[in-house]
Nucleic acid binder design. Structure first.
Lengths: 157, 157
DNA sequence: GTGAATAGTTAAACTGTTTAACTACCTTCG
DNA sequence: CGAAGGTAGTTAAACAGTTTAACTATTCAC
């Protein structure tokens, strides 16, 4: 049953799955490591995803997207670069700027990992009805959207 | 409207609020600090809550409850103890055991913080209908319960 | 061309976490 | 009794992710 799940819904579920199933900072003992067999933290996986998606991006952009300090990004990228997954490339037109791209290994690892997550999530999905899942996702998004808003906009004003 | 919210529902909302609104490890820049004005991390607040609730508990108990290593607890408790919020007391009957209790300051800080969270959450609550909220909570719990199960029980077996 | 803005890095400090080794203290059983 | 093994908790080293503050390059604007 339930073969009609569209990719978008699956992708959302994947995100929720990664986000909810384990908190971030457990020295790599994240869901990715435990169940997917990847050596990446959830955060690192997200980074790789964003960099791949954008093709080429800057630290500042990442800092804005992930709502985090630039130094935090520097640290993460350095670790990723030490693992040979991300490459830094100076912009010769504006030499302040550094572009980040995935190396081939980075690309490979990301895609392999993503596929495994995909398979895992699909195997989960078959246990539920489609509208059950979409209702989960909707509610979850509504809820966390509200709470995030509140967290950002200093409620009570 | 919506004055009929029972305490239990509010408490649940508080937990969700703390859990969802900010991820844990931002050097204290958690929701508690930003909005409540407390100097505690979310994790630290949870610790205080558990210790207060149990009156007196051990590291091992905390480690089990929070599903974390005993050394992690040692570290957290040490920091809390350095702040003067938690006290260690050796069990004279079984001298291996160390009981943890809140100091008066710990108690005060916890209660003040909890009250502020309470007030904040209540001010949020009035913006929604009761059944909207309970449906949020139910769904959220169902969803994260499922995902946590999956995360623990190595799905696909 | 000097002074201000921008991109990114580095350093120090902190929280939370793990693994491995260690101390101190029971318990058990020959 | 006393050695062997288990239990409670700590310590040390390592790591990920953060922040703030200071710094280096580089570009821009007037």
């Amino acid at each position: 049953m339930l073969k009609t799940l569209d990719l978008q819904t699956i992708q959302k579920l994947i995100d929720r799955y990664i986000a909810v199933s384990f908190s971030v900072n457990k020295k790599g003992e994240s869901m990715l490591k435990e169940q997917i067999g990847s050596d990446l933290t959830n955060d690192q996986h997200y980074m790789l995803r964003y960099i791949r998606q954008s093709g080429e991006c800057t630290s500042t952009e990442l800092a804005e997207v992930f709502e985090v300090n630039k130094s935090a990004i520097t640290a993460i990228i350095t670790r990723l670069s030490d693992k040979g997954l991300v490459k830094r490339k100076r912009d010769e037109a504006d030499r302040r700027v550094v572009y980040l791209t995935l190396t081939e290994e980075g690309m490979d690892l990301f895609e392999k990992t993503e596929q495994r997550i995909h398979a895992l999530v699909e195997s989960i999905i078959t246990k539920f009805e489609l509208d059950e899942i979409t209702s989960f996702i909707d509610t979850y998004e509504k809820l966390s959207g509200i709470l995030t808003d509140l967290a950002h906009n200093q409620l009570g004003e």
